[in-house]
Design a protein around this nucleic acid. Structure first.
Length: 301
DNA sequence: CCTAACCCCTGCTTGC
DNA sequence: TGCAAGCAGGGGTTAG
């Protein structure tokens, strides 16, 4: 799994400066000089990869950091150097490759949406991003991440021991007083209590919990809060174990697609029968809190 | 302090 | 068949 840990960066090519400039982030223009971004990374070794919410933190040997956010269509795909071929097959192989590409054209890298190419000493790491919403930012060290408050105001990790039922219950109770009418979907989407529930998993969690996305948090029962808590962990766990949903352009690090979409119960299931046992409902889709929102009007209350 | 609206961007889908 | 408009969405910023 950690394909790139321990590898050294030999060269970096930035084909779209916006990805490294930090526009639309809390770090506007900190490094907007593509040359500087490129040069500062050469020779550094990748020693660790961490994650905080939906951010990827690539740690280098001098403890500088690449902060990566893929947003919806970003991809970080690693292709190892091809294994050296036996002498006799070497020539034949190169001929075959000329006329009959081994890979599908869409898998060929780099392609028109490849915006950064990291040459490592064992292969190549590509940053691709059709919609260019994502970013790869350089930080001198982890302290800078903190001082620049990049992660300020975001909630706990769903798989952290901090994320207990008691914590979730307590945080929801607090909001019940301040944000009486705020719908539960908005609370889950804004990442302030717990991170990880994007639009797909919000809809899935609420479907499984039998709670309408529009329901005001002040009207949630303790039992419903507990269901939502359990389902956040359950659904995110299952999604991760099946490699994510790959709804748009999401890929695993080796370029393969995840298959959690096969298990979706509501997301993009509008006008189909509700999959809850014995439920007569037909899944509906609306726009709510600025997002496509899917729910079963029969069993979600 | 809050919320709603807008912005970034391209590819796919829909409608005429 | 073509073309334009609409939609998708994480999360930041801006306006009110």
């Amino acid at each position: 799994m950690p394909y790139i840990v321990g590898r050294k960066i030999k060269s970096v090519r930035v084909l779209n400066h916006k990805i490294v400039a930090g526009k639309g982030t809390k770090r506007v223009g900190s490094i907007d000089n593509t040359v500087k971004f490129t040069e500062i990374l050469i020779g550094k070794k990748i020693i660790d990869i961490k994650r905080r919410a939906k951010n990827l933190i690539i740690v280098l040997n001098d403890h500088s950091i690449l902060l990566v956010h893929l947003k919806m269509t970003g991809q970080l795909v690693f292709q190892p150097l091809p294994k050296s071929l036996p002498k006799r097959e070497g020539l034949a192989s190169s001929i075959v490759k000329g006329g009959h590409p081994i890979q599908e054209s869409e898998n060929k890298l780099p392609h028109k949406h490849t915006y950064i190419i990291f040459e490592l000493d064992s292969g190549t790491l590509y940053y691709n991003d059709v919609r260019q919403f994502g970013y790869v930012l350089y930080f001198e060290n982890e302290t800078v991440l903190e001082t620049e408050k990049h992660f300020d105001g975001i909630g706990v990790e769903p798989f952290d021991k901090e994320f207990t039922h008691a914590y979730f219950q307590y945080e929801v109770e607090k909001l019940k007083k301040r944000k009486i009418k705020t719908p539960i979907k908005k609370i889950l989407l804004d990442q302030k209590i717990v991170v990880g529930c994007g639009n797909i998993y919000c809809d899935e969690v609420l479907w499984k919990s039998g709670v309408l996305p529009t329901r005001a948090i002040s009207k949630l029962s303790n039992e419903e809060i507990k269901k939502i808590y359990n389902n956040i962990i359950d659904i995110l766990d299952k999604a991760i174990n099946s490699g994510g949903s790959s709804v748009a352009n999401y890929l695993l690090a080796d370029g393969k697609r995840g298959n959690y979409a096969d298990y979706h119960n509501v997301y993009q299931k509008q006008d189909t029968a509700c999959k809850k046992k014995g439920c007569p409902g037909i899944i509906k889709k609306t726009t709510f809190v600025g997002r496509g929102t899917h729910f079963c009007p029969a069993h979600q209350k």
